[in-house]
Design a protein around this nucleic acid. Structure first.
Length: 153
DNA sequence: GCCAACGTTGGC
DNA sequence: GCCAACGTTGGC
C-alpha cells in the first residue's frame, strides 16, 4: 500500500521536534490525543507513513520538520494511569477509548514553514490544518507535502 | 491575556 | 435528540 502523509501538532513547550530528535531511533509515543477525529486519523496510520511536525501555541507557529511512523496505533496507556494528565476515567484495559502511535525523528526543515506562509499560499488553501484549526492530527496530500517541502528550503 | 471556533457534557 | 453551558485549542 502507498504511504500516507500526516500533520501532527505539538506545543514545543511541552514536546518539541528537538526533543523527538534526542530520542533517536527509539522514537516516542505520540500520546495525549483526546479528540475522536484526531484519534481516528491516528488509527489510519501505517508504519512508514510520513509525519510533518507542526509547532503550535508558540512564537512562530508552523511546520518545523519531519518524522516517520514506526508503530501503528495501540491503546494509550496514559488513559489508564490515574496520575497522568491524560487519564480518562471512562477508559478501561478492555475498552480504552484512546490510541497512540510511535514516531521517530527524520529531519528538521532548513527553515520553518510558518502558518502565515501556509495561509498566504493558494496551493495550500485546501489544507485540513486551515479548515479545522483546532484539529491536532490531520491528513496531508502528496501535493501539499511537495509545496511545504519546497517552501522549507 | 483575549477571544473565536468548536468539541463535549448533561439536563430535560 | 436538542441545545445551553462549559472547556479546550491556538492564533493573535
Amino acid at each position: 500500500m502507498t504511504t500516507a502523509i500526516w500533520l501532527l501538532k505539538t506545543e514545543p513547550d511541552a514536546f518539541s521536534l528537538e526533543e523527538l530528535a534526542a530520542r533517536g531511533d527509539a522514537g516516542e509515543p505520540w500520546n495525549g490525543i483526546r479528540n475522536y477525529q484526531a484519534r481516528n486519523f491516528l488509527r489510519q496510520m501505517s508504519v512508514g507513513d510520513s509525519v510533518l511536525v507542526y509547532h503550535s501555541a508558540c512564537k512562530v507557529p508552523g511546520v518545523v520538520g519531519e518524522a516517520v511512523v514506526i508503530r501503528s496505533a495501540y491503546p494509550d496507556p496514559d488513559a489508564l494511569e490515574p496520575n497522568s494528565p491524560y487519564f480518562d476515567a471512562k477508559s478501561t484495559p478492555e475498552a480504552n477509548r484512546w490510541s497512540v502511535v510511535d514516531v521517530r525523528y527524520v529531519r528538521h526543515f532548513r527553515r520553518t514553514v510558518t502558518l502565515q506562509e501556509i495561509k498566504k499560499d493558494e496551493r495550500l488553501a485546501g489544507m485540513a490544518l486551515l479548515k479545522q484549526s483546532r484539529l491536532s492530527v490531520s491528513p496531508v496530500t502528496e501535493k501539499e507535502y511537495r509545496v511545504l517541502s519546497s517552501l522549507s528550503d
